[in-house]
Design a protein around this nucleic acid. Structure first.
Lengths: 205, 205
DNA sequence: TGTACATCAGTGAACGCGCGTTCACTGATGTAC
DNA sequence: TGTACATCAGTGAACGCGCGTTCACTGATGTAC
């Protein structure tokens, strides 16, 4: 992460990577522009050649996160193949997998306090990512008799909330951590119970 | 919140209140000891008569939060009366009610980064609060045939995660906020589906 | 009831610190001819 | 192939700021006699 000559070569990306690492290690609070610059082997002032400031750097980190997130969710959903049920479950797993694989991104996206509406671009990409969840819910909903079918947005919101809660409380070493269950199992079983409650899984098993 | 004479009278509590208000308004990051002192009409140095420092002040705010939280949860659970189902649902509602009624406390407790294990006292009171959820789950579990009964800790963890997720994503004006459903309804319906999945509610209705 | 004095809860000045941001600058790169 | 020059991406010094924390201090309170 240390540059050699006068020109860095790829400072922009190096800064984003430093930002992500710092956020992951020290939380969104702990991140400072100066330290990211230091990490990249560069003067703080150099950052301003590539970003408008501290916030803008975090926003870019989040944006890249949503990009990867959207891709993972979409490829997990796989247009509802082989069945909308399998696809839905895969989507839930992808959510957690992303949070674990890219903790820095996840924090930048959901805990750093930057708004998803900060820029049109950020709004678009985050909407695309979370839209997958909703599409998955819509597809699954078709298998529920219309009269006791909850609105798909509500369905999606439930799953999102459950997933996010599992990540925040049990996905990292931080505050809760008391649970004797690995987060994957927790989320999978939680979704299982939920789907059974919707009549989408056989009551037993 | 401004003192009159040389002695404040109740500076300790005034500082905690200021801390909570600042945390609620500006997030845990935005809170500074100096500003809390200013708010209380007092020199920053005066804070050290009552707390060991910034962290200690936040921890006390969290502690008081857990105190209230435990009380609300316990009185909602009401020893499982009138039925373990009703008691359980009331407990879930109490969780959300607390988060909405005491946002500053909630943030200090779950988002400020202070550990629940910071002091034995904090560990005890937070354990007591979250223990209610587990007792409620245990009581409810008895109505499930043993062979398809999930461990009550898992049960409790699911509900906690769902509740926390709803609070974080939809309970405040911040990042998600796109959901067209009020958080209360979201949580209630989510728990409803979940309990149906456990066979604790009739499949229809 | 009055006074001496210990205790307590504040002051205010000072500290060192690292931060984010700005500015005029300069070294490196690449392109036109 | 060589040279002049525009453009770009960095430097480094400086700024003002507010922070958390410390220290010797002093004003107010309450208690003993």
């Amino acid at each position: 992460m240390v540059k050699q000559g006068y020109h860095h070569g790829n400072l922009r990306e190096a800064l984003v990577r430093a930002c992500l690492q710092l956020i992951e290690d020290k939380g969104p609070t702990g991140f400072t522009l100066s330290e990211a610059a230091r990490e990249a082997g560069v003067t703080p002032a150099a950052v301003y050649r590539h970003f408008e400031g501290r916030e803008d750097l975090i926003a870019e980190a989040a944006r890249q996160g949503f990009e990867v997130f959207a891709q993972m969710m979409e490829s997990a959903f796989a247009d509802g193949q082989p069945s909308s049920l399998k696809a839905f479950e895969a989507t839930g797993r992808a959510y957690l997998a992303f949070a674990r694989q890219f903790p820095g991104h996840y924090i930048a996206m959901f805990e750093s306090g930057i708004s998803m509406q900060r820029t049109p671009e950020l709004a678009a990409i985050s909407g695309r990512a979370l839209g997958v969840l909703e599409r998955a819910a819509v597809a699954l909903s078709r298998h529920i008799p219309a009269e006791r079918r909850p609105p798909p947005q509500m369905f999606a919101a439930h799953i999102w909330a459950l997933s996010h809660g599992v990540v925040e409380l049990f996905g990292r070493g931080t505050p809760g951590a008391k649970s004797p269950f690995p987060p994957e199992q927790l989320l999978e079983s939680g979704i299982g119970v939920y789907l059974r409650g919707l009549g989408l899984l056989p009551p037993d098993s």
